[in-house]
């Protein structure tokens, strides 16, 4: 369809400009010398410097990374088991409830999830803090992990497992030598998805956190409400760079795995 080349390129240009221009502006103005975010006053890295002297921000970033790493491990573990239950166990009683509980958190507004988690922690008399955020994040991210892993499982040739058993491998060897290597890329992407979702979450963290466990999005949010500052631009740019790097590495790894 070469006749439609021009409108196609125009659509692509407009679409990607819409998607990336706000991010680009944000990054560019993180290097602005002026305190005014929208008026360019020369190149400077002073906001990055001041960022690293902001102890509260650094502490929050540390908490966020720890919460994300831990909750992503739990979510991947739970998500793997859930994916097997959905894909391989056939019918069992209350399967419908289980399926609903896996898929509902994908679309239910985070405010409801956060609110309900807060209520259960209050009702159980649990002090809110680091571990309640981990539990909350592990819960909603395990559903995403389950979906990713289930898709991979569904695409896996069942006859590979049968072949392994036919060749004398018991269930443990079949899982370790045949299923797990096939599943590994999905486990990695499930963990990454869970990690990033947790790192990004503001709402559930706000409901489940306690004193001394302010995550990075919570810290950013409270500053953003007071107005746009170049320091937040710098912080955001660093986060974007980190995510961009992670995406790039996983894309390269994915390509290597395929070939």
């Amino acid at each position: 369809m070469t006749s439609a080349r021009l409108p196609r390129l125009a659509t692509l240009a407009f679409g990607f400009a819409f998607l990336y221009a706000p991010i680009a502006l944000l990054v560019i103005y993180s290097f602005n010398a002026s305190k005014l975010v929208t008026v360019w006053a020369g190149f400077s890295t002073r906001w990055y410097a001041s960022l690293f002297s902001n102890a509260a921000l650094i502490a929050s970033a540390k908490i966020s990374l720890q919460v994300a790493a831990l909750s992503a491990i739990i979510a991947t573990f739970n998500g793997t088991l859930a994916a097997f239950a959905l894909e391989r166990f056939g019918a069992f009683r209350t399967r419908g409830v289980f399926v609903g509980a896996i898929y509902a958190p994908l679309v239910i507004p985070e405010v409801i999830l956060g609110l309900s988690l807060l209520l259960i922690f209050v009702a159980l008399g649990v002090d809110r803090g680091f571990w309640t955020i981990v539990a909350g994040h592990a819960t909603f991210t395990m559903c995403f992990a389950a979906v990713v892993i289930r898709a991979r499982l569904a695409g896996m040739d069942r006859s590979l497992e049968e072949a392994a058993m036919d060749l004398g491998a018991g269930p443990v060897m079949t899982f370790a030598r045949v299923v797990l290597p096939q599943l590994a890329p999905a486990l990695v992407s499930a963990w990454m998805l869970a990690f990033i979702l947790s790192l990004d979450d503001l709402v559930i963290a706000s409901f489940t956190s306690g004193p001394g466990s302010t995550t990075l999005p919570m810290r950013i949010y409270s500053q953003v409400r007071l107005g746009v500052t170049p320091e937040i631009n710098a912080m955001s740019s660093l986060l974007l760079a980190a995510v961009g790097l992670a995406l790039f590495i996983s894309a390269i790894a994915g390509r290597r795995h395929e070939s």
């Binding site: 502006l25 999005p217 949010y221 746009v228 986060l239 961009g244």
Partner: peptide, 17 residues
Amino acid sequence: APFWTSFLIRVYAWIAI
């Protein structure tokens, strides 16, 4: 790809715009 980057930051970027 933008989905993978922070939701909060992407919303924040629009304030300045």
